[in-house]
Simulated assay, not measured.
Amino acid sequence: MAIFSTFSALLQAVSGGGRATLGAILEAIRSLFAGDPETRQKVAFSVAIIALSAKMAKADGIVSPSEISAFRQILEIPPEEMRNVFRLYDIANQDIAGFEVYAARLRALCEDENGNCQLLGDVLDALFHIAKADGLVHERELAFIEEIATIFGLDEAAFTRLRERHIAGPNNPYAVLGLDDDATPGETRRRYLTLVKENHPDRLVARGVPDEFMFIASERMKAINEAYSKIAKREAA
């Protein structure tokens, strides 16, 4: 099922009761897909990328062309669905409710399914991809993503690994793998194999990542492979 084709019904469901809000959208997702938890999780993930990207842009105050390009890389929006996607973006941008409220409700919606929603980590990866598209993760963007991560349930150590993977990764391949710089070759190899297994496309499909958003998964695997290759070359030198 094409996730974007659900957005029209979603917008219709929230347009009849006054001003549309992110809260109303989440309730519509919950009710419209009550009998289809897999689709519900995929739609929630899709809307999360759109809504939190809009909120991050508002928090930072600047939307660069490179960030718009990164946003569209992740979503790969079909031309016929462009209007609906950006209508959702505008709703998020204009909603007076803070992103904290939306993030907390998103976590609750996600946890309704299995109590341990790894999709929330995929959302954070997507936000970092957009934030760093202009070559720098700005202070307000970083603070925004860190607050989202806290609401999603990441502890400080987990967020540090996530941050370092995105910010220090190009210059520190160990950060990409979540290792200390003095990790042994055996430790590096085991960690690499674990990450490859965790990020295999079949695993991502099983946890509800829509096909339309496999770009983030591909970027993550590319970073993991490049990091391991760099470390292996250093060890062989």
Rank of each mutant, 00 (worst) to 15 (best):
P210Y: 12
D122H: 02
K197A: 15
A54E: 13
R140S: 13
E80G: 02
H200G: 03
R83K: 04
F144C: 12
N84K: 00
P170G: 11
H200Q: 14
G23K: 01
G61N: 11
N114F: 08
D122N: 06
D60F: 08
L124M: 09
F144Y: 05
A237P: 05
H166P: 00
G169D: 06
E226F: 04
S218L: 07
K233F: 11
L154M: 07
E139Y: 03
H200A: 15
E212T: 02
L120H: 05
T39N: 10
A57C: 04
Y192T: 02
S15I: 02
A217M: 08
I231T: 02
L106A: 06
E67G: 04
G18D: 09
L26G: 00
L75F: 03
L22K: 00
R165G: 05
S66L: 15
I130P: 07
A24V: 01
M214K: 02
R207N: 12
S5H: 08
E139K: 01
H166I: 03
V101N: 11
V205H: 13
I167V: 15
T150R: 05
V85S: 01
K58P: 03
A54K: 00
I167P: 00
Q73C: 13
G61R: 01
R165V: 07
A236G: 11
P170T: 08
I74A: 09
I167C: 08
R220F: 09
R207P: 12
D125Y: 04
L75V: 02
S64F: 06
G98L: 08
G135T: 06
S66M: 12
V123R: 00
S66C: 09
L22T: 10
V47E: 11
A157M: 11
A9L: 07
L124R: 01
H166C: 10
F33H: 13
E187P: 05
G153N: 08
Y174A: 12
T6C: 13
G178L: 09
T39E: 14
I77S: 04
F99N: 02
L193V: 10
R19E: 15
F159M: 10
S31Q: 15
A2W: 03
L10N: 02
I50L: 07
F45Q: 07
I130G: 07
M56K: 03
I167H: 07
Q73V: 10
I68K: 02
S46P: 06
I74G: 04
M82L: 08
E147S: 07
A236K: 12
V205E: 15
L193N: 14
R190S: 15
R203F: 03
A44M: 14
N171L: 15
D180F: 14
F33W: 14
K58R: 13
I25T: 14
F128A: 04
F213S: 06
A104Y: 10
K197D: 15
K132T: 03
F128Y: 15
A168P: 05
L154I: 03
V137Q: 01
I145D: 06
T150W: 05
A227F: 06
D182H: 14
P173K: 00
N93W: 13
I29Q: 01
S229R: 14
F144N: 05
P210V: 02
T184C: 14
A28T: 01
P173F: 10
N114P: 06
S69H: 14
R191V: 09
S218F: 11
A2V: 02
D90A: 06
N199Q: 11
R72F: 06
R83S: 12
E164G: 10
M221E: 12
A20G: 00
V137Y: 07
S218D: 14
